[in-house]
C-alpha cells in the first residue's frame, strides 16, 4: 500500500515541480527576455529584485509549495536508489525515519526563511 501511495505522489509532485521550477528558472535565468518579475535593473539576484519579488504573496506561496514538493520528490527518489542497494530491513526503517526528519527540518527552515524574507521585504 505504502509504495503505491508514495509513488503516485512522487509523480504528482514531479508535475507540480515542473510548473513551479519552470517558473523559477524563467524568473532567474531568462531575465533578459522576461523582465516582469525583475523590475529593478541588474541581476535577478540583486537585493532590489529580491525585495520586489519577496513582497508578493504569490511568490511566498509558490516558494513554500515548491520547497515541500521538491523535498518530497527528492527524498523519495534518494530513498528509492538506496533501497535498491538492498540495505536490509533495519537500515530501511532507519532511512525512512531519517529522510522524514531531514525533510521536515529542511521544510521548516525554508518556510521560516521564506516568511522572514517576506516580512523583511514588506518592511523595506
Amino acid at each position: 500500500m505504502r509504495d503505491q501511495r508514495l509513488w503516485t505522489w512522487h509523480i504528482g509532485a514531479g508535475a507540480v515541480i515542473l510548473v513551479l521550477l519552470g517558473l523559477h528558472m524563467t524568473v532567474m535565468h531568462l531575465d533578459a527576455i522576461v523582465r516582469v518579475f525583475n523590475p529593478a535593473p541588474g541581476e535577478p539576484v540583486d537585493w532590489a529584485n529580491v525585495v520586489a519579488r519577496g513582497k508578493s504573496v504569490f511568490f511566498l506561496v509558490t516558494y513554500v509549495l515548491l520547497l515541500g514538493t521538491a523535498l518530497f520528490h527528492g527524498f523519495y527518489g534518494l530513498r528509492n536508489i538506496l533501497f535498491e542497494l538492498n540495505p536490509g530491513a533495519p537500515a530501511k526503517k532507519a532511512m525512512n525515519g531519517l529522510f522524514l526528519v531531514a525533510g521536515l527540518v529542511l521544510f521548516a527552515i525554508g518556510t521560516w526563511a521564506a516568511w522572514a524574507g517576506f516580512t523583511v521585504a514588506r518592511s523595506a
Binding site: 534518494l78 529542511l106 527552515i109 524574507g117
Partner: peptide, 23 residues
C-alpha cells in the same frame, strides 16, 4: 542528475535562507 539536484537543492535552501537576515 536526480542525486546532484537534491544535493544542490539542500545547499540552495541554506544559501537563500540568508534573505531572512536582510540585505
Amino acid at each position: 542528475t536526480g542525486l546532484a539536484l537534491l544535493a544542490y537543492f539542500v545547499l540552495h535552501i541554506g544559501v537563500t535562507s540568508s534573505r531572512a537576515f536582510g540585505e
